[in-house]
Amino acid sequence: MTDKPLLSVRGLTIDIPVASGTLHAVRGIDFELMKGETLCIVGESGSGKSLTSLALMGLLGGRISRRASRADFDGTDLIAASNRQMRRLRGARMAMIFQEPMTSLNPAYTIGDQLIEALLLHKKVGRAAARDRAVALLEKVGITSAASRLGQYPHQLSGGLRQRVMIAMALMCEPDLLIADEPTTALDVTIQAQILRLLVDLQREMNMAMILITHDLGVVARIADKVAVMYAGELVETGPAADIFNAPTHPYTRGLINCIPVPGKTARGAKLGTIPGIVPSLVGEVTGCPFRTRCSEAVPACRGEIPVRTRHAGRQRILCVHEDGQRAASEVPA
C-alpha cells in the first residue's frame, strides 16, 4: 500500500441555513482512506453521514455550504475544484450508490441507456463498446440474461435488481472510490446480504476504495478496514475496525456496540443495550461534546473544548475529555 492516501479530509464542515438560524450539520471531521481500503461511516439517522458523502461528491443542494482545511482526492481539492473538474471526477473516478434503488433510476430511459450514458460521459468509446461493457458489468453484478435487460425500463425490475443496476452503473468507468450510502437499507433482508457480498467482492476485484455508510454494525464488523463513528456531526471515534470492535473507547461507540446482541453471550430475553436520550439540536452555536447529555461518563468539563486523543500509536482517534473514554471514580459526574 502506498503511503499517500487516496482521500484525505481535514476539518470538513457543513452548514445548512434553516428558518431559525444555521444548522451545523457536520463540524470539522477528519478522515483518510488509502487506495483499495474500506471505510465504514456509522452513526444514527441525522448524524451527517449522507451529507458528508454528498459533500465529497459535490452534490449538496445549492443552499448548503461546505468547507474544509483539506479535502484532497488524489491531488484534486474537492472543495476548490470547479464544477467542470468535479464533473470529470464524478462517475469517472469517484462514483456513488444511493439508498433508494426504487427512485434512483430515471423511469423514462432504459437500463441500457443509463448504463451506456455513464461510460460515454467520460470515455471516448463507441456505442457498441459501451454496450458490451454494460452487458459485462450487468453479468458481473449477477444479473442473468444481461443483454436482454438493457432494453428494460426501471419499473420492470425489482428493488434488488435496480440496486444491482445502480452498482453496475457506478462501476462503468472503474472508479477509484465508490461511495455507497446505505445501499441495502431499502432492500429485503435476504437481498441485503447478497448486495453487500457483491459490493465487497467487486471492491476487492477492482481494487477500489470504498466508503460505506451504514447504521448496521454487523455489516461494519464483517467488511470494514477502518471505521468512523459519527455522532451529531462529529466523528467521535475513528480507527482500524479490529481495534474499534475489540476495544471501543468513546462512550458512544461503546454504547453502540453494547446494542448488538451477541449469539451465545446475550441471554435470551435479556434487555438489549440502549442509549437513552435524543440527539441534540445542532441549530446555532454548538459547544462542548454533543453526546454529553446522554453520556454516563459526562463531567462538567464536557461543556468545554473537547480534546482529540489518539491511541494505538495514532491509529485510533477519539473525541473525549477522558483519556480512555471513562470517567475516573474521583471525578464528579455532570
Binding site: N83, T103, L105, E117
Partner: peptide, 22 residues
C-alpha cells in the same frame, strides 16, 4: 429534487443534460 436527477449528476452529467434529458 428527484433521486434520479441526483444520480445523473453523480454520473458526471453536465447540467444541460441533467435538465433537458433527465
Amino acid at each position: 429534487s428527484a433521486d434520479y436527477v441526483r444520480t445523473a449528476r453523480a454520473k458526471g452529467a453536465p447540467e444541460g443534460l441533467v435538465l433537458f434529458k433527465h
